[in-house]
Each structure stands twice: as structure tokens, then as C-alpha cells.
């Protein structure tokens, strides 16, 4: 599973697909202080992106993939 959801941290790996947006959303609905680690993520589907943006999650580790980090991080940081 490219998105691994633990107690209050979700870990993203590789290409995270649209199918994972819904479980992620449900997980986030139950979390007060959700954190995500994107270090090993190379792409995440638009559906996941918008869920992360709407939930205003905190990214503890940005993606190693420089291209993804460049476009993704501003979108996730804009909201506090």
C-alpha cells in the first residue's frame, strides 16, 4: 500500500493512486493533528492532493523527488 496510515501519521510511498483518496479522507476526518510524510512519494493523484489541501495537514517530510516537491509544497503550505 503506497499510503500507510498509522496513529496520527500517514506515510506516502511511490505513486499514490486515486483509490486511496477515500480511505485517506476518512482517516483525516478522525484526526485532530494529522501529519504526513511524503519523503518517498513520487506522485500523488489529484484526489489525494485536494484531500490533503482541504485537511490542512502538516507535512513533516517533504518529497525527495525535487519536481514533485516544487509543485506540491507551495500548495500545501499556503494553508495553515
Amino acid at each position: 500500500m503506497p499510503v500507510e496510515m498509522m496513529k496520527n501519521v500517514a506515510c506516502f510511498k511511490g505513486v499514490c493512486t486515486v483509490e486511496e483518496a477515500e480511505p485517506l479522507l476518512q482517516w483525516l476526518q478522525d484526526q485532530q493533528r494529522a501529519k504526513v510524510k511524503l519523503k518517498e512519494c513520487t506522485h500523488l493523484h489529484t484526489a489525494i492532493l485536494q484531500v490533503l489541501m482541504a485537511a490542512k495537514v502538516m507535512v513533516t517530510l517533504p518529497p525527495d523527488d525535487p519536481d514533485l516537491a516544487r509543485w506540491l509544497m507551495p500548495a500545501l503550505k499556503n494553508r495553515r
Partner: peptide, 23 residues
């Protein structure tokens, strides 16, 4: 350069539909 934003204000998380594209 790229800006990604919602087309309308974010709904509360409990009412959100992950599979409606809002971006």
C-alpha cells in the same frame, strides 16, 4: 510557475467528497 487552488471554499472535511474534483 504553478498555483493550485480550490474553485470554491473548502467544504468541512466531514462533508467533502474526495472524488469530486475541486481544484
Amino acid at each position: 510557475l504553478l498555483a493550485i487552488g480550490p474553485t470554491e471554499p473548502w467544504p468541512p472535511l466531514t462533508e467533502m467528497d474526495a472524488y469530486q474534483c475541486l481544484l
